[in-house]
Design a protein around this nucleic acid. Sequence first.
DNA 1: CTGTTAGCGCTTTCAT
DNA 2: ATGAAAGCGCTAACAG
Lengths: 356, 356
Amino acid sequence: MNIREVARVAHVSTATVSRTINGSDKVSPETAQRVRAAIDKLKFYPNNNARALGSGRSSLYGLIISDITNPFFPELVRSFEEVAVQCGQEVLVANTNYDPVRMETCVRRMLQRKVDGVAILTSEMEPHLIAEFADRRIPMVFLDTGVPGEGVSNIVVDYAAGVDAAVQHLSGLGHTDIGFIAGPMTLTSARIRRQAFVASLKRKRIRLNPAFIEAGDHRMSGGHDAMLRLLARPSRPTAILASNDMTAIGAMGAIFEQGLSVPENISVIGFDDIDLSGYTQPPLTTIRVSRPDIARTAFRALYTPNQDPPPQGAKFTIHPTLIERKSTGRMTPQTQPRPRKTPDGGVRFAKSNPIE
Amino acid sequence: MNIREVARVAHVSTATVSRTINGSDKVSPETAQRVRAAIDKLKFYPNNNARALGSGRSSLYGLIISDITNPFFPELVRSFEEVAVQCGQEVLVANTNYDPVRMETCVRRMLQRKVDGVAILTSEMEPHLIAEFADRRIPMVFLDTGVPGEGVSNIVVDYAAGVDAAVQHLSGLGHTDIGFIAGPMTLTSARIRRQAFVASLKRKRIRLNPAFIEAGDHRMSGGHDAMLRLLARPSRPTAILASNDMTAIGAMGAIFEQGLSVPENISVIGFDDIDLSGYTQPPLTTIRVSRPDIARTAFRALYTPNQDPPPQGAKFTIHPTLIERKSTGRMTPQTQPRPRKTPDGGVRFAKSNPIE
DNA sequence: CTGTTAGCGCTTTCAT
DNA sequence: ATGAAAGCGCTAACAG
């Protein structure tokens, strides 16, 4: 079943069938009608491989991520796929698994399939691999880590604005002793978030107590342990901002373990707004970094319908929003009672994958 | 940059280059060596689209799932991709989003890309879509829901064995009042799990108290609410088996809320062993349904190297294993103290995506 | 073992 | 507006 059969049935040439399929405007409505009828009748699906070969465009877009089991990514993948499919394009997902060697394979796969563009949403990317794409004029888009240029776009999250909103919210509730649980300093985004926190306090003229900053690992266990260290201090914050949601959830677990409660005794704010965050008890107030936004932006940075001018490298900004749920509350005299004995349980989580 | 250039540089014909690339044994080592040198020198990557067109095999395998944000799937996707890449094949992932219309699009995409096989891991699949693949002799594999036949394989999870192991474990700990929190009866796998539970008790000659069975929705909220109903009863089970981990986690939350603890007062066993389960407090004892196993089995059911005989439809069985963690314990006199008042908090989760 | 050559199915000039 | 025909890059007979 191919285009020639269709042409025969519709009494036209293969060229006309091709034009019809591709929505060319130089096909008379009647002819197009006939062709479409033939296509339906024969249940004809064009062969995308042939299409790609003939046209030089594959309608395929690469999406490279470090680990699909990392809760940050699935929604990103889904949204990216959604826009792509809407635009009649497809997605080749590849996992590097945080492994430079696998990254190499991923890149080769993208190259072999002749992707029309590639979104590189991992934290690290070797320059020589970037060159492979650049040499072939394949548009790229990065998250936080890119350097805009010829055909290279970068999506930057306005962490500063996000943190500002959180700090504002907290200070509006009367908190002045605000702590921060950072992520691993090896991660670019974690470094940026921490800096944003420090800068935000300065901007708001809130005293930063260096003892109120602890480092986690962007996993629940790290947040849990960091919170424990914070709570062990003689003086401690009445509100905590965490570098990501997993960290915040771990921190809440530690707080409960110490017989304190959220938000009565301590307010907690997370970062990212992963699915889980809406369902913790209490539901987590967090700074949402919209994965659908990132995905849509990434795709748009790559995709150009028809033979429009190839996408210019650009910088796109994602604006986080504060999602107020139940883990933050007004600062009251009871903010710092002395720890009670741990009650039975409380579902607490520890260790899990790090999140971007 | 194409095969002809390589041929020119290596002073051979394009056919020889092609043979070398495909590892044909009818190329003298020296020639192959020369060709490979040329390939490296020119940084040549074969064009997969042309390859597919020429050979009729795309080296692409479809993976259709209902929702990548459902915690059951990411690990499945990753493992599937891993085996595929190891075999030099690639994966086209598609999300139906539980939507029959999108399912239709997904199928068309697979068809257009000429996948060499497709794993349909959703709970529902319309017969006429199955026919589309069958007509084109594209191998298929299903999870639980398939009917093995010409080129159609089915992976069945031996739920009975899994449940047996759990019940055995529980009865070994002295429990005889065992409850079950089921999943939504609309889901095939949930129905099977429930049946397996009933059958297992019968086999082990343990009395089944109908009042000890409640239905959840395979989400935390459902497990939580079902557990609450169970706890409100005059007599209640000393151990609970849940239809999936999310349900079990929700149930644990409810138990803690009532001032009881796990496993001191009630033992809880989950089903699936999603990542989260190892990190709850206490870590959840669960019946692992290995996603890597499913993924590998699915891929092998589809993939046949070279021009081996096309895969015969077959039935594959996945054997679940009991993962003993900390949510189950010996039955003691304190199994049924009267509920205490809810302590502050305890991180508890509610609502989330259902899990297969 | 290697080369020649005819496709694979579609797109895309170039004519008409 | 439509058709003829030349590729796109590779594979796979078929010869030798």
